[in-house]
Design a protein around this nucleic acid. Structure first.
Lengths: 126, 126
DNA sequence: CGGCATCCATATTGATACTG
DNA sequence: CAGTATCAATATGGATGCCG
């Protein structure tokens, strides 16, 4: 049996393209931040611990290019730039929540497994 | 209103820890490969286009450490090493499928958005 | 076969300085 | 405020060779 293996994961397949997009350290966090509503650049920056201004700019540009986020410049002084999820961006929240829920429920078990693994390594160094 | 912003995404929060684990280029693809059943090292390697032996080894070790994958060495010559998802690992498949489904359904729209964005940049180079 | 060690090119990121 | 530009540090990944 087992006649039908699915296709291998080729470079351009949906899984790969998705991972290339949201598989970096900041993209998902920005989307989750914007789920609360439109936010200014500095607000987003404050809510994501450790993101540099450069990385946040890059991430937001990529999200805008992907059609997941809109960028609105209010012509004032000082400038005010507001980012907001598009409908497409919001549609990603459900699936992301699925993963987040898994993380909340199962990360403790993952970390237990890590401890066990590391302890075993110490006992049998090689 | 809007009294209650959720906590910011601190460095050690579940979202961050999850992304640190599965946010790399290969982890998700390995899990999806193993969903079909136990597989040998070389089988996995063949099914993921472009993964080097070094990266696959690293990824499998991390997954084993996380308790998501078991590694079984069959003491034969030549050696045969079989990897298999644990129950914990299998529990991650549902959430991952959610994301994959989103990708399949919406990546075309994302790529349209990119084209539009890039075309606009060409028109107004700066 | 599976996998470790090494070397090396390149990508990613952070820090800093500067601008409209 | 919200960027851009530049440089330096680091992380990542691939290629190769060797081993049980």
């Amino acid at each position: 049996m087992r006649s039908t293996e699915p296709d291998p994961y080729q470079r351009g397949c949906p899984s790969r393209r998705l991972l290339d997009r949201i598989g970096d350290r900041w993209t998902v966090l920005v989307i989750l931040t914007l789920r609360e509503g439109p936010r200014r650049f500095s607000e987003i920056r404050r809510r994501i611990d450790g993101v540099s201004q450069k990385m946040l700019t890059q991430t937001l540009r990529a999200l805008e290019r992907d059609g997941l986020v809109t960028r609105t410049v209010h012509p004032e002084v000082p400038p005010r730039v507001v980012y907001e999820l598009t409908a497409l961006g919001r549609s990603l929240i459900g699936p992301l929540d699925g993963l987040l829920g898994w993380a909340t429920a199962n990360l403790p078990e993952v970390e237990d497994a890590q401890e066990g693994y590391d302890r075993e390594l110490l006992r049998t160094p090689r």
